[in-house]
């Protein structure tokens, strides 16, 4: 895992994203593609946390709806992140309902771990391993914390927007994100030291 400062860039893109969305709403498909490229990484990351390996498919479904309803959207770049995250979340919950799986971020345990395939280069393997590892840690959080953390950190939403996506009060989401990050920090920190620390943490609920 490298420190890339990505979340900073998430925010920095908001202006560009807002402009792209505005042009896309006037019918500019190139601008729509730009918006897609800015939003998709975070959206996909969030969906990975929710539905694991089906994230790509769910994201595709979400984008169909986003493309269709774009004319309805009102707001700036940051708002577009929130709007798209809401759509993606609904798609993800639909997906989980269809699967009759509890919507917890544990799509990962079974299949994600053997993801780095034979075709991977070493670098890719390392990268995807770290992705899985991170998702594994997130999966140990209670769902409200996991979602709050993913929306804040990975999608790049501010507190009120994340709360709106989740349909909760800002205070509750702030607390959830806060606790989630704290717990992740502990999980990460404990890993280096001892094995027994984190085991029980995921089962608090």
């Amino acid at each position: 895992m490298s420190q890339r400062g990505e979340p900073r860039r998430v925010q920095a893109y908001d202006g560009e994203l807002g402009a792209a969305v505005a042009r896309a709403q006037e019918g500019d498909e190139a601008a729509f593609a730009v918006a897609y490229r800015i939003v998709q990484p975070g959206l996909l990351g969030y969906l990975r946390g929710l539905v694991g390996n089906d994230a790509e498919d769910v994201a595709s479904d979400a984008w169909l709806e986003i493309a269709r309803d774009l004319g309805r959207f009102k707001g700036d770049g940051a708002g577009f992140r929130g709007w798209t995250a809401t759509i993606a979340r609904h798609r993800a919950l639909d997906h989980l309902r269809r699967q009759k799986v509890r919507p917890r971020a544990t799509g990962l345990e079974s299949d994600v771990l053997d993801l780095p395939g034979a075709h991977s280069t070493y670098d890719q393997a390392m990268e995807s391993l770290s992705t899985e590892h991170a998702l594994e840690l997130v999966a140990q959080l209670p769902r409200d914390q996991a979602e709050a953390v993913l929306l804040r950190v990975v999608v790049g939403l501010d507190g009120p927007s994340a709360a709106r996506v989740l349909g909760k009060r800002p205070g509750a989401v702030r607390t959830a994100a806060h606790r989630g990050l704290k717990r992740l920090a502990r999980l990460l920190g404990a890993e280096g030291v001892t094995d027994e620390g984190p085991r029980t943490l995921g089962e608090s609920r």
């Binding site: 895992m1 490298s2 420190q3 890339r4 400062g5 990505e6 979340p7 998430v10 998709q40 990484p41 975070g42 996909l44 990351g45 990975r48 946390g49 770290s130 992705t131 590892h133 991170a134 998702l135 840690l137 997130v138 953390v149 993913l150 804040r152 950190v153 990975v154 990050l181 992740l184 920090a185 990460l188």
Partner: peptide, 12 residues
């Protein structure tokens, strides 16, 4: 730091 690590790892 955790957020930065997480974002780097999970964002596609």
């Amino acid at each position: 730091p955790v957020a930065v690590l997480l974002a780097a790892a999970v964002r596609a």
